[in-house]
Design a protein around this nucleic acid. Structure first.
Length: 340
DNA sequence: AACGAATCCAACCGCCCACGC
DNA sequence: CGCGTGGGCGGTTGGATTCGT
């Protein structure tokens, strides 16, 4: 006997959430905090299953998420990370503060995949032309090799592009960065893919920083829940403008939703992603986030990645970078070999 | 202006895993 | 150790919106 189908209870509502439902959910979480989703429908009277509540919260209502308008840097990072991690959206999302795995997944499926396919088809046309000119036979193995070679060059380009973008971004605020000790032990002794991966990739943004983005979330919620805020100010259209979200909401959210501290990563490194770099907040570091575990999914298998180390070093130190870029490439090949 | 095609994205589904008993 | 349950994750769907003719 298998598990009963998902949310098949009679009376469980499906489909888009209404503002009223959002209000109820947000209010409940404000009071009780996220988690124990099982009890949410019971305690709130929402005719939704627990999973639906959790998804609505994590993908839409949760403080600190940014929606739409992916920047070039984010795009490059997604492409880069996807090449390294595959479709492990939660892991990728953990490297992109403010983005949900669902959002990244959608963006990949709707934008990036097509973009890459286009590029790939263009380059494969060129390859085909070259082969035709050379009169070479196209066995499957040679095609594989060629694909791999193409892929390698593209990844190399991606790496350099991402690296450049990250360097540019990092250079904006290098002084504020505290680089932890570089740890490369795993690189020299990659006993497993996971270890290898953790060594090569930087850790996701640290969750213990304090900068707040509840504002943008309050904006999200306010936008979605007209009427929830008693006297909204003029509608805001950007994150920076969203600072103007009502004090009432801000204070309320500040109390209940201290910063998803992952934002600290973006805010301190700037990362070049955000156009809300002017959004400065004054939440104290000790304002431990209610959503430290909630704001971003954990890395796969809940493995706590090592302290931010390698990529920063990699980005900031060309010599080190060049040395480990090979590792990165090797890793990428290991992980994606089966695809070619 | 109308209609069909294409695109977007919120939400659902089902599988998997961790954890408690 | 096995089982049941809750939660997390990736793939997919379908309604809404936008675009092209």
């Amino acid at each position: 006997m298998g598990r009963p189908p998902y949310c098949d209870k009679i009376g469980v509502k499906k489909g888009p959430w209404t503002p009223e439902e959002d209000i109820i959910l947000v209010s409940y979480i404000q009071e009780h905090g996220p988690g124990n989703w099982r009890s949410v429908p019971t305690n709130t009277g929402l005719l939704r299953c627990s999973k639906s509540c959790r998804l609505r919260w994590t993908n839409y209502l949760r403080p600190g998420i940014k929606r739409g308008n992916f920047t070039d840097q984010e795009e490059k990072m997604i492409i880069h990370l996807q090449a390294l991690l595959g479709n492990r959206w939660a892991a990728i999302a953990s490297y992109l503060p403010q983005r949900t795995d669902n959002d990244i997944k959608n963006y990949w499926n709707t934008h990036l995949k097509k973009k890459l396919n286009k590029i790939q088809s263009n380059s494969s046309d060129q390859e085909h032309d070259h082969r035709t000119l050379r009169g070479s036979n196209s066995s499957s193995s040679s095609e594989t090799a060629i694909s791999k070679g193409k892929w390698e060059r593209r990844l190399q380009t991606d790496i350099h592009t991402a690296k450049q973008a990250l360097c540019d971004a990092l250079s904006l605020d290098n002084k504020s960065i505290n680089l932890p000790e570089l740890s490369t032990s795993g690189i020299t002794n990659p006993s497993s893919q996971l270890i290898h991966q953790q060594s090569v990739l930087p850790p996701p943004p640290q969750m213990s920083h304090s900068m707040s983005t509840y504002v943008s979330s309050a904006e999200n919620i306010a936008r979605l829940l007209p009427g929830w805020i008693k006297k909204p100010q003029k509608p805001s259209h950007t994150s920076s403008e969203s600072i103007g979200t009502t004090d009432q909401t801000q204070n309320s959210m500040k109390e209940q939703f201290p910063s998803p501290s992952s934002e600290g990563f973006e805010n301190s490194l700037q990362f070049g992603f955000s156009n809300n770099s002017d959004v400065s907040r004054s939440i104290s570091p000790e304002t431990t986030s209610l959503f430290q575990d909630e704001s971003k999914p954990k890395t796969e298998n809940n493995v706590q990645l090592p302290p931010l180390s390698f990529l920063e070093k990699w980005l900031l130190d060309d010599a080190t970078a060049q040395e480990h870029e090979d590792n990165l490439m090797n890793l990428a090949f290991e992980q994606t070999d089966g695809l070619f």
